[in-house]
Amino acid sequence: MALYALIRAMPSNYVKQMTSGKPGVTDQLIEQLEKNYGLDSSIPEGYVKWAGNVIKGDFGTSFVYKQPVFKVINDKMWASFWLSFIALILELLIAIPLGIISATKQYSKTDYAITTFAFLGISLPSFFFAALLQKFFAMDLRIFPLQGMVTAREDYEGFRLLLDIGWHYCLPIIVFVVLGVGSLMRYTRTNMLEVLNSDFIRTARAKGLSEHKVIYKHAFRNTLIPIVTMVGGSLPGLFSGAIITEGIFAIDGLGYTALQALKFGDIPFLMGFNMFLAVLTLIGTLISDVLYAVVDPRVRLS
């Protein structure tokens, strides 16, 4: 509700924007349009009306896209999802092994190198890195396209379309991966260190297991537990997209759409989007809890 109030407070509401450039629009017309868009009622009233609609399953029509909000979200979210999903897989493949190595070789040169790289990733401003990539890879080397999801003016179908999208996705994925690997790797490292100090690892060594087995069988399995639950919990969030990066690469995903909506004051969309985010978070928590029970035998109810 707070969100609704804020947006309504935004002075440049949609109608005014739309009509600002047009000459000859009478005040009466503005009033008429405002009525149509439901902006004439006071703030609390508007919210109640919206909530009432939501319960009925009607999220309203987006101002900008002139389609039901539900449909808009549904259309755009897949683009964001695939982007984030592929990036996540790559991040995991890179971060977990690095984290384990970093923990087992604590304070060695390897550890320092990996840690530095991780911090680099965390500290990069996404827009800056994206711009750098665009400059070097897209402009200078011309390996990847600059922006967009598909190459304009070419109408690919089927598999070629898939390849084309994939090619366009490369740079944004690189941005996501570099930024995300760092924290995942540190997380793995911290957990691994904690596990390596526990008693059962001592027992495993006392049984005569090789160090390799101790790390990769006993310690690893325990370290996985918090990682799996965290990753599982973040799965739903993959649908929501990243506002800035999508904007730079002009990927038509949910994040980009949300940014446009904000700029234009598209209230139904924003409200729907917010609900969407909340639902995603809830699902994420649920998944995380379920996974925890699957992976950690201590948590299962008998």
Partner: peptide, 27 residues
């Protein structure tokens, strides 16, 4: 250490103090 690992648990074995935490919880 490789020789030591042959002996551990095999010819020389050890029982620790805290049974609550000495076993791996996931196996």
């Amino acid at each position: 250490i490789s020789k030591m690992q042959e002996l551990r648990g095999n010819k020389i074995s050890m029982i620790f103090q805290e049974p609550m935490t000495s076993l791996n919880p996931v196996f």
